[in-house]
């Protein structure tokens, strides 16, 4: 009974915050709603008996990914108003596709049938004698070992890709060279100008031929 109530509360908050993610005007609010959605999803995982997944969701998605999102949204100067341009134009098409998808999902829910063997799998999602983490580890490192190793390769490719797309080859870091600093003479660095009273800085820079400021 209490579990049911908890499920509906968390699920409702999850749906509402998911809607807010895409409708919120301020993008920082969107990310905060996303975090709320993640936390509610984690609560649903706990209710379903998957504590480990719930913890991973909170630690990885809330702790790392969402915070990174927040940084990116705050630091990048993305013009979200410009991104929304054309929304009116494409809205009818988008709504049509969305409506068709909703009908499909509706049909799936109404006429949901499960293969005869599949009931058994659903009834015993967890081996009885193992803890959540141990059961997952057992699957990942034995049954799904091949897939696990391939995912590692995927991460390597992502890393190589990020480096290929952003790395610029600068010959060595910009170190301080004390010798050249010492050998600099005054006339190499300093221009003496007599300033006429009342004339702006702009005219001086034009006279001396050097940028000031």
């Amino acid at each position: 009974m209490i579990a049911d109530i908890a499920f509906y509360v968390f699920a409702a908050i999850l749906l509402i915050s998911a809607c807010m993610v895409i409708t919120a005007r301020n993008s920082v609010h969107s990310v905060l709603f996303l975090i709320l959605a993640f936390i509610n999803a984690a609560a649903l995982f706990v209710l379903a008996g998957a504590e480990f997944l719930a913890m991973v969701l909170v630690i990885v998605y809330v702790g790392a990914v969402a915070v990174l999102f927040l940084f990116v949204v705050m630091m990048l100067d993305v013009d979200f108003a410009a991104l929304r341009e054309g929304f009116q134009r494409y809205a009818p098409l988008g709504l049509t596709i969305g409506f068709i998808l909703m009908v499909e999902v509706g049909l799936t829910v109404i006429d949901w049938s499960v293969a005869s063997g599949a009931h058994f799998v659903r009834l015993a999602p967890m081996p009885a004698h193992l803890s959540n983490t141990a059961a997952l580890g057992d699957l990942i490192y034995t049954h799904y070992m091949f897939a696990f190793e391939l995912v590692a390769l995927l991460l390597l490719i992502a890393m190589v890709g990020a480096i290929v797309l952003t790395h610029t080859d600068r010959r060595g870091p910009r170190r301080q060279n004390i010798e050249t600093q010492h050998e600099r003479r005054i006339d190499e660095t300093l221009t003496m100008v007599t300033i006429e009273f009342g004339s702006g800085a702009k005219r001086i820079s034009a006279q001396s031929g050097k940028e000031i400021g």
């Binding site: 049909l107 799936t108 006429d111 949901w112 049938s113 499960v114 063997g117 599949a118």
Partner: peptide, 11 residues
Amino acid sequence: ALARHSMVSIG
């Protein structure tokens, strides 16, 4: 599973 299921399941 698909072969054993006599009816066509929409899902």
